[in-house]
Design a binder for these strands. Structure first.
Lengths: 203, 203
DNA sequence: ACTTAGTTTAACCATATGGTTAACAATAGT
DNA sequence: ACTATTGTTAACCATATGGTTAAACTAAGT
């Protein structure tokens, strides 16, 4: 009863669906297009995933499960805040270069359907508690200037994620072609960490 | 031949279209829903705007023409960089509180259709040249630490715009209800400017 | 060989959707 | 009052779309 194939149909579908959903979003995606990209019949999509909604959710959860560990790297790692910021910045940018549609996809779809995030709020969902303690500790030790952990976290996310989400806008305003945009992003692997640390480090 | 009315049909349509397009995006919006919200017949949409695409473009241009002056406030004002950052941060956040769907709408749609930005690139489209000169000048005068104008501009945009774009994510990770989220944002009116200035100000 | 269970296909279906049409209403100029 | 122009409506149309069905195919178990 097992199919001996290079890749089973279910995965072919999921990969095609990832591709289409992440570039066009839930509303812009067409089941026929996904089927075509997977090289199979449209009925197969429903055979394996029942509905567009369920197929989409499979893709979304999959995408989020890639992003979550990245965020947990700031929130739950044991290294110092300075080290975390340096590592996260370099790692996250490399990570997104490999998955360019991820941040946009997640942000867009979370905005489209606010309730949707409830379906994710468990197993490994990033949470800020530990980070809060760490920030307060380092402030007390005089290692960093006073700042709320929430604001610091928002700032770290913003500086790292935004340049990808707003790529078209940034390219237009800075009059960059793809090459120059890529250089800007590459620079940010160190630039962003320095910018943050400059701001919060005690002198 | 003029209609004496509280509001002419064309504007009613545009307002309804704004509402629907900005919350649901081009792909998620339905002409029927726009007509219903405007309280008119669906044929009127086509009578006044010919097609969904053209109606959408009217809404988009309108939205962008609100955002552009905000960005130009950093790029082309005559005040010092420090003052610009302080003013922009406070103003922009107040501005978005009034137009909460704006940044998301623009970013989402620019990502959906990359070519679309070409239709905007004229009259008052924000451009970074003047800001570049100013940054270099202030660095030379020793007022701020060395930083590329592009990176500084990206950082300013990121810290200000991202918290709105990523609202659902931030709310979930910081376990905030609407009230706490609003407080976080309110804090940022001064927090963000301090964060940036701390980082670039010479000591 | 035959049965059984899972897999795949083509054809089909109901509905939604953007858009059109033709008739009708209102208004202003004459 | 008559006419031309503009505004508005209901009915309609072609197509796209998510989803279903019934039949055919495949591979393993016996």
């Amino acid at each position: 009863m097992k199919k001996i194939k290079d890749e089973n149909t279910e995965d072919q579908i999921l990969n095609a669906a990832k591709n289409i959903f992440q570039t066009k979003g839930m509303d812009g995606a067409r089941m026929q297009e996904i089927a075509d990209k997977a090289g199979i019949n449209k009925a197969m999509l429903h055979y394996y995933y029942r509905s567009k909604q369920l197929l989409f959710e499979a893709v979304f959860k999959n995408a989020f499960s890639l992003l979550a560990p990245q965020l947990n790297a700031i929130l739950n790692d044991d290294s110092s805040i300075e080290d975390k910021i340096k590592n996260f910045t370099a790692n996250y940018i490399s990570f997104i270069i490999k998955h360019p549609y991820l941040p946009n996809f997640i942000i867009q779809e979370l905005n489209r359907n606010q309730d949707f995030i409830l379906k994710l709020k468990d197993r490994g969902f990033p949470s800020i508690e530990k980070f809060k303690k760490q920030v307060d500790e380092e402030i007390n030790k005089g290692l960093i200037k006073p700042i709320s952990a929430e604001q610091l976290f928002i700032n770290i996310m913003a500086l790292n994620i935004f340049p990808f989400v707003a790529k078209p806008l940034i390219k237009a305003i800075t009059k960059s072609d793809d090459k120059h945009y890529k250089e800007l992003i590459e620079e940010r692997k160190t630039e962003v960490a320095n910018f943050i640390i400059n701001s919060i480090k005690t002198t």
